[in-house]
Design a protein around this nucleic acid. Structure first.
Lengths: 201, 201
DNA sequence: GTCTATATGGCGATAGAC
DNA sequence: GTCTATCGCCATATAGAC
C-alpha cells in the first residue's frame, strides 16, 4: 500500500543520505546503501532509476533542511545586527546536530558546482536581491563587495570548522569530543563578537 | 638513465596532482592520469605499484608546498600582529596560484582524516608547542582556547573562500573570473583588518 | 623503461520469478 | 513490492614482448 511504499522510500533516502555524506558521490556504493536500508540493490533501482537520480533527491532534501530558514532570516525586516546574530545561531546549532552537511556541501560543490547553483536557481533564489537587501540594512551607503565580504566571512567562520572537524578535533584537541562540543558552543559568541566588531554593529 | 627516470616520474606526479585535485581520490581514473602524462597505464604501475601509493605521494608533495613555510612563520620571533599578517598573505597568495589545494585538502581530510594528522605527526609537528608559542605572543595572559579560536578563525577566513570558489563565483559574481580575482586580492586586507580588530592588535 | 594485451574483480543496472 | 540471478561495462592491476 501507499504508506508502506513511501516508508521504504524514506528508509532508502535516509540510508543514501548517510552513505553519500560519508563517502561522497563517487565513493558511495549502491550495494552499501541497499545494505544499510536492509533491502537489495534491485529494489533500490525500483524506487530510483539511477544512482544520479538518487543523489539529486538526497541533495535537494539536504538543502531544504536549512536553506529556506536562512533565506527567510536574511529577507526579514529586522536590524542587520540581529540578522547576523540569528544566522550565526542557526548555522552553528544546525551544523552541530548535522555535522555531515558542511562536508557534504563542500565536497559536492567542488565536484559538481552546478548542482548547487541550479538548486538555488530552481528554488527561485535571487542572490542579487539578497545582496541588495543586506546593503539597505546599513545606515551609511555601502558597496556591493562590502556586503559580499560580509557574507563570505560569515559563511567561512560558521562552516569551515565543521568541514575540517575531523582534523581539527584530532590535531587541536587530541580527539577529545567533549572539548570540541564545548568549543563549538563558545564559537557562537566568538563569531558574533568578531562580526559585530568588524562591521561596527 | 636516472635523470630520464625521475623526469617521467615527476611528469606522472604532476599529472596525478591535477587529476586528484579535480576529481578527488574516488573520482580519479588511472587511465586519465596516464593520458595526461602522455604514457600508458602499465608504465604508471611500473613507477607506482598502486593507486593508493600514488595518491599518498601526491598528498605529501602537496602538503610540503605550504605547511613548512607556515610553521616557520608561526614559530618565528616576530610580533603576533606581523605573524598573522604574514600568514594571511602567504595563504591567500599561495592559494590564489594553487586554488585546487584547499578543495583537495578539505575533501581528503574528511574522506581520510588520518592522512592529514599522520602527515603532521610524521613531519614532527607538535600542535601543542605551536599553540603555546602563539599564547606567549600576547602581552596579557590568554587561555589556550582563545588561541585555538584565533587559529580556526584565520584558517576559516583564508581557506573557505577557495574551497567554495566554484559556487561563490557562480552565485555571487555570475561566474565573472576577473571580479573574483580582484575580490580575492581585496580579501588580504579585509581579513587582516578583521583579525587585528578582533584581537586588538 | 615502455609498450600491447589481458586477467580479475567490482559496480550500476536489468530480467524475470514470486 | 521485493527478491535472486546475471549482464555488460569499466577500473585496477599484471604478464610478457621489445
Amino acid at each position: 500500500m501507499a504508506s508502506e511504499t513511501s516508508q521504504t522510500k524514506q528508509i532508502i533516502l535516509n540510508s543514501a543520505r548517510d552513505i553519500f555524506s560519508e563517502k561522497g558521490y563517487d565513493g558511495a556504493r549502491m550495494q552499501e546503501i541497499a545494505d544499510r536500508a536492509g533491502i537489495n540493490k534491485a529494489l533500490l533501482h525500483y524506487y530510483f532509476t539511477s544512482k544520479e537520480q538518487l543523489f539529486k533527491t538526497v541533495f535537494s532534501e539536504m538543502m531544504g533542511l536549512f536553506i529556506p530558514h536562512l533565506l527567510q532570516t536574511v529577507s526579514g525586516s529586522i536590524p542587520i545586527r540581529d540578522k547576523i546574530g540569528m544566522i550565526v545561531d542557526i548555522y552553528i546549532d544546525f551544523f552541530s546536530k548535522n555535522s555531515f552537511i558542511p562536508v557534504f556541501v563542500i565536497r559536492e560543490m567542488t565536484n559538481n558546482p552546478f548542482f548547487f547553483s541550479n538548486y538555488l536557481k530552481n528554488t527561485g533564489v535571487k542572490s542579487d536581491r539578497l545582496i541588495h537587501e543586506l546593503m539597505e540594512g546599513f545606515h551609511e551607503k555601502v558597496q556591493k563587495d562590502f556586503v559580499i565580504h560580509l557574507i563570505i566571512n560569515t559563511l567561512s567562520l560558521c562552516i569551515f570548522p565543521f568541514a575540517a572537524e575531523p582534523v581539527l578535533k584530532e590535531v587541536l584537541f587530541q580527539g577529545d569530543d567533549n572539548h570540541w562540543k564545548k568549543f563549538i558552543q563558545d564559537r557562537k559568541k566568538t563569531i558574533k563578537e568578531i562580526l559585530y566588531n568588524a562591521y561596527s554593529l
